[in-house]
Structures are given as structure tokens and as C-alpha cells.
Simulated assay, not measured.
Amino acid sequence: MEHRKNGAYIAINWNHIEDELDKATWEKLTQQFWLDTRIPISNDLRNWRHDLSQEERDLVNYVFAGLTTLDTLQSQDGMASLRADAINQKEEAVLNNIQFMESVHAKSYSSIFETLNDKATIDQVFDWADTNEFLQYKANKIDDIYLNGTPLQKKIASVFLESFLFYSGFYTPLYYLGHNRMLNVAEVIKLILRDESVHGTYIGYKFQIGFKKLSADEQAELQSWMYDLLYDLYENEMKYTALLYDGLGWTDDVASFLRYNANKALMNMGQDPLFPDTAEDVNPVVMNGISTSTANHDFFSGVGNGYLLGEVEAMDTSDYDI
């Protein structure tokens, strides 16, 4: 958006709010601020070394490498692309906040890798991410839209990434959380989930504003493009999921979780769900873990995330109804 008016550079004025949801989202995101360095990931080393098989450790490493790739995409290209289409300065500020937290998310996975693995393993895992055909397909598909799409197409791509594509990776730590394993790693993921809940609903809300300004024909054309994109991403995601989870027999459960979250992504944008899957179809252990409440496992030092963040809950989707 233009930052000058009659030759003057315009200062952001938070006392003049064009959209109350910009202010509410800014306040929510700043209340939720956290850093990975305050979570005692090393407390999970016993679980990692003694309770998880090598196949399970490989799975954790690969899903986190995939999540790192997607969060890097969001922080380096996604939010910059969306910010170019912001309609006011407060929206730009919110997107700046989101961009920074996506960098925090990506860095958090490196903290997990560094705590649990040796350097050779970390290098191998990142090589896997950089060359995996299914992971690279979805990253490049989304990035191409960020580079060449319309403002509304870019918002669709971002919501699909935030609210759908991340979840093939989130399933693993939530599953272990439900079985009382890797609790501190899971706390990092729950903090990321809490952020992504706000990111997806906020950008979906901004999509709805623009979508309502289109003619009926333009809406129908964009909806056709949106569902075609989702089908394409879903087909690729099933291949990625099978590659990751077939060995442990989890693929069908993860697929239900993905379809459920694909519907949530569509609903964030005010669209009808595509798949029949509901929360009742998802593994209840994982659904329990997806709760955005936090816990404090570091009772002695008092620096766990529950202590630092206080009682902060993600914004409800209904907050973004327009």
C-alpha cells in the first residue's frame, strides 16, 4: 500500500482504526508472544533415547524438517507477498508480526533438532527436506502463487498452508503428547498451533472482505480455482503422508486429520467444507492434544511457557465473522 500522501510519509496512527479486527489481532498476537529458548526441550531426551524406536525418531525428524521448510516459506516469501496487498497500515503491522513469528516457528524446529540429534543427523534430515519431491512440490506450488497470483489467490494459498498443509507434521507430536511422551516438544508445537490458529483465521477474514466485493461470476471463478488448488494439494499431501506414516500404520488416521483441517481452512475463508470428515473422525488422542491451552512442565525454574504467557487463548473463529 502507499505510505505517502501529498509528499508526506504517513505515520501509523493506532488511534484511528479502520478495522477493529486488525487491532484485536495485534493485541492477541502480542499477548501470545513466546520464544523456544524458554521451553526445556532437553527434558524430553529420555523419551527420545529410550521410548521411541529408530523409525519413530526418523519420523519426528522428517515431519519437523517439512514444517521448517513451510515456515521458512511463510516467513521469507508468504507474508511479504501478502503485505504488498494490505489495505491499511494496521494490517501491515499485523502481517509484520505474523512474519516474525513464522521465523520463530522455523527457528524452534532447529532448537528441537539441536537438542535431540547430532550434527550428521541434522544435515541428513535437511538434505531430505531439500530433495523430497512431495514436500518440494507443495512448497513450490504455494510460492508460485505468492509470486504470480492475485491478492485473493495469495490469501487462499496462505490459508491452505497455515490451516491445512502444516497438519501432516503436527499430527506426530500431538499423538505423542496424547501418550505422555515428548511433552516439551509438544508444548512447542502447541504454541505454534495457537499462533497458526490466529494467522489462518485472520488471513481468511481478510480474504472474505475481498471476496464479497467480487461479482457473482468472479466469485464462482475464484471458487473453482480454490477447490482445484485444494484437490491438487490434497492429492500430493496423501503421497507425502503415505511416505511418512505407512511404516507405522498411521496413514489413515493422519489422512482423516488432514481432511478435517482442510475443511477448517475453507471455513476460515467463509467457504463450504469439501470433505465428510469431522472432529469425530479424528483420533481422539490427537484432537485432545490440539487444544491451544498450555502447560508448564518446568516446575523448578518457573520458566515454562504457561508461566511466561499467562492465560491466553487463541481467538475464536467467530471473532472473524463478517
Score class of each variant (00 low, 15 high):
Asp272Glu: 03
Glu133Asn: 05
Asn283Val: 03
Ile87Thr: 11
Ser75Asp: 04
Ala86Val: 02
Gln136Trp: 13
Lys23Cys: 10
Trp48Tyr: 14
Thr317His: 02
Lys5His: 06
Ala242Asn: 05
Asp22Ser: 10
Val159Met: 13
Arg49Lys: 02
Gly310Gln: 02
Ser42Pro: 12
Arg38Val: 00
Leu183Arg: 15
His199Met: 04
Ala86Ser: 08
Ala80Gly: 09
Leu177Lys: 15
Asn296Arg: 02
Asn117Cys: 13
Pro276Asp: 06
Arg4Asn: 01
Asp85Cys: 10
Asn180Tyr: 10
Leu21Asn: 10
Met267Gln: 09
Ser224Gly: 09
Gly289Trp: 02
Leu70His: 08
Met182Gln: 15
Arg181Thr: 10
Ser224Gln: 11
Asp252Tyr: 08
Ala262Pro: 00
Gln89Ile: 00
Asn15Gln: 03
Gln31Asn: 13
Arg57Gln: 05
Met267Phe: 03
Phe211Gly: 12
Tyr240Gln: 13
Leu248Gln: 03
Met315Gly: 09
Trp128Tyr: 15
Lys206Asp: 07
Tyr205Pro: 12
Arg181Val: 10
Leu67Ala: 03
Asn261Thr: 01
Ile203Ala: 00
Ser291Gln: 14
Leu152Val: 00
Glu56Met: 04
Glu218Asn: 04
Phe300His: 12
Asp77Arg: 14
Ser108Glu: 09
Tyr227Val: 04
Leu230Gly: 07
His297Ile: 03
Thr72Glu: 05
Gln76Thr: 12
Leu21Ile: 01
Thr131Phe: 13
Ala265Met: 06
Ile145Arg: 14
Val188Trp: 13
Pro173Phe: 12
Gln153Cys: 12
Thr115Ala: 13
Ile12Ala: 01
Asp71Tyr: 01
Gly247Asn: 12
Leu177Ile: 04
Asn283Glu: 14
Ser301Phe: 09
Lys138Met: 10
Phe33Met: 10
Gly270Lys: 09
Val198Cys: 12
Phe126Gln: 14
Arg46Leu: 07
Gln76Val: 12
Asp44Thr: 05
Asp228Gly: 11
Tyr202Ser: 04
Asp144Met: 02
Leu52Asn: 05
Phe170Ala: 13
Asp58Gln: 11
Ala65Cys: 03
Asp281Val: 08
Asn140Trp: 06
Arg194Thr: 07
Asp85Trp: 09
Glu27Thr: 00
Glu221Ile: 04
Lys206Arg: 15
Gln208Met: 09
Met267Leu: 10
Thr69Gly: 07
Glu114Asp: 01
Gln223Cys: 03
Phe170Lys: 08
Pro273Gly: 08
Asp127Arg: 13
Ile10Phe: 02
Asp144Gly: 07
Thr294Arg: 15
Phe211Met: 06
Ile209Trp: 07
Thr30Ala: 03
Asn263Trp: 11
Leu147Val: 03
Ala106Leu: 09
Trp48His: 07
Tyr137Trp: 11
Thr37Leu: 05
Phe113Met: 11
Thr115Ser: 08
Ala24Asp: 00
Lys141His: 13
Lys28Ile: 08
Ser108His: 11
Gln219Gly: 06
Phe113Ala: 01
Ser215Phe: 15
Ser158Asn: 15
Ile10Thr: 11
Gln136Asp: 05
Thr294Met: 14
Thr68Phe: 12
Gln32Arg: 07
Asp36Thr: 04
Thr131Gln: 14
Glu114Asn: 07
Lys28Ser: 15
Asn47Lys: 08
Tyr109Lys: 02
Glu56Gln: 14
Glu280Ala: 07
Tyr260Asp: 01
Asp77Asn: 11
Asp316Met: 14
Phe275Cys: 00
Leu248Glu: 04
Ala8Pro: 01
Ala220Val: 00
Phe166Asn: 06
Leu147Trp: 02
Val303Phe: 11
Ile39Leu: 14
Ser318Tyr: 07
Gly310Leu: 08
Glu20Val: 11
